[in-house]
Simulated scan of single mutants.
Amino acid sequence: MRISQLSRLGGVRTQTIRFYEQQGLLTSPDRQENGYRAYTEKHVRQLSFIRRCRLLDLSLPEIRQLQKQQDDPHQSCAAINTLLEDHIADVATRIDALQTLEKQLMSLRSRCNDDRQVERCGVLAEISEMDPAT
């Protein structure tokens, strides 16, 4: 199949497929005599796996690591568990940061609860006085 067909089946743009190839996540396809890439069902499976990993917010290096583990199916899955535990910890850290941001935004929003003119807007005044290092 051609890249446009793989794109439709995989639900991604052709540029994304080329990017995954460049990153080594998608096996480089054979070339036909006319120079077109010839994709197979293997590429569809690889692309589906990559997309599912991205839905889990796994990074490209994490996906690459999982693919390496897939290539040796008789080894222990301890490395996979460690990767996932690290990813879960990263997600928890980001959640904490987003909750802190939410509190800051709510506090900021409380600075201006009425219909003031912009020149007296508490939100803009607070933002102007904020320390960028915090």
Rank of each mutant, 00 (worst) to 15 (best):
R2P: 11
A97G: 08
C112W: 00
T93L: 11
S4C: 10
N81W: 08
R45I: 09
Q99L: 13
Q32F: 03
A79W: 05
D30N: 10
V91G: 05
C112R: 04
G10W: 06
T40Q: 12
I63Y: 04
Y20R: 15
Q46M: 09
D115S: 11
E129R: 15
I3W: 04
H74F: 14
T40D: 02
M106E: 11
R109P: 00
E62F: 07
S59A: 12
I88V: 13
N34T: 00
T16W: 03
G11Q: 00
I88E: 11
E85H: 15
Q23A: 10
H74K: 14
T27G: 00
Q117K: 15
C121R: 05
C77M: 13
T40H: 01
I3A: 05
R120Y: 13
R116F: 08
S110T: 07
Q5A: 14
L105M: 15
D131T: 03
C53T: 01
R45S: 08
D57V: 07
R111M: 09
L25A: 05
R37S: 02
R52I: 06
S107K: 08
I17N: 01
C121W: 02
Q70N: 15
E129I: 10
T16Q: 06
I17M: 04
A92R: 13
Q99K: 13
C112I: 02
Q65G: 12
Q117W: 13
S59H: 03
E102M: 10
M130T: 15
L6C: 06
A78G: 08
H87P: 05
A79D: 15
M106Q: 12
T27D: 09
C121K: 04
L47Q: 01
G122K: 03
Q70L: 14
I95L: 09
G11E: 02
C121A: 04
I88D: 07
Q65D: 12
S48I: 09
G11D: 04
E41H: 10
Q46G: 11
L108W: 00
L124Y: 03
A97L: 09
L26F: 02
L108T: 04
V91E: 06
C53E: 00
C53V: 00
L26C: 03
L56H: 02
V123M: 07
V123S: 05
T14E: 13
G10Y: 04
